[in-house]
Design a protein around this nucleic acid. Structure first.
Lengths: 139, 139
DNA sequence: GTATCTGCAAAACATTTGCAATTCT
DNA sequence: AGAATTGCAAATGTTTTGCAGATAC
């Protein structure tokens, strides 16, 4: 699932996105992190490397990435929007204790009869609970 | 799935919620509507009936309902929080044309192996696309 | 009469917009 | 130079908080 750092520039170009430094760094951060970061955490993480970076650019860039189909939005909580550069079909689990959001594979699910006749463009599966690690610590 | 209007007061009491007029009306609206309303639409719909109603009360009440487990939050879009008084296991489909959010039944899903050892407290399945009605109109 | 609940006003956040400065070609 | 991109500052929108008044028991 992990993309090659070497190919990031080409990957952006192929998606119709001119790879500016800001865009490259933001995408690199998304690909390299497995934390499904928010705008805030992307901005904090990169502003030391790119001191002039603004949140507006982070917002603009993520919107562009989303429009060009190279990132998806994760709405697992109503008060935080997260982003994921892994656009393959998978679910997201958030631990309510350690707050981490992890991917999990979903079996390509059976046809949902109730949606016959509808065109499906996007689907998201979110699960919340307590992860094994946090369960263990609280014993 | 539809609850009896006669029982709403008891339903709230049983959930540990004192049924004030505001709370009753808000819950009645949630149960009676199949539109999965936002704070804004609940407020607009009820402020003619309860002219002194404030949005703060709508926010307070919905948070209380959620804490007591009688409503769930629907985060199908990042820019709108919707509420549902149907707390049974079901999915939500949003049509990107008519903007309607509809319920759909999901087969009680198979054990997800990747989540073995984790405690699941909540799960949401969101699908977006174009509903059959809108597809038909655009032919 | 004490607790709780409500609702106004202000504060806190998150996101968007307008526009001028910068960068790229 | 011309077009696209960036980033500041202000505007917008949503949700929360503090607190005073109203209501319920």
């Amino acid at each position: 699932m992990l993309k090659e750092i070497d190919n990031l520039e080409k990957y952006l170009r192929d998606a119709g996105i001119k790879p500016s430094i800001q865009r490259l760094k933001i995408f690199e951060y998304l690909v390299g992190s497995n934390s499904h970061p928010t705008v805030e955490s992307i901005y904090s993480a990169l502003s030391s490397q790119i001191p002039t970076l603004s949140k507006t650019t982070v917002y603009n860039t993520l919107k562009l990435f989303q429009q060009q189909g190279i990132v998806i939005i994760i709405n697992i909580e109503d008060n935080e929007t997260r982003f994921d550069a892994d656009i393959s079909y998978h679910g997201h689990f958030k631990c309510t204790v350690c707050k981490e959001v992890k991917d999990f594979p979903i079996p390509k699910h059976e046809q949902i009869e109730a949606l016959d006749g509808h065109d499906i463009s996007e689907s998201h599966f979110y699960i919340k609970g307590i992860c094994a690690k946090c369960k263990e610590l609280n014993k």
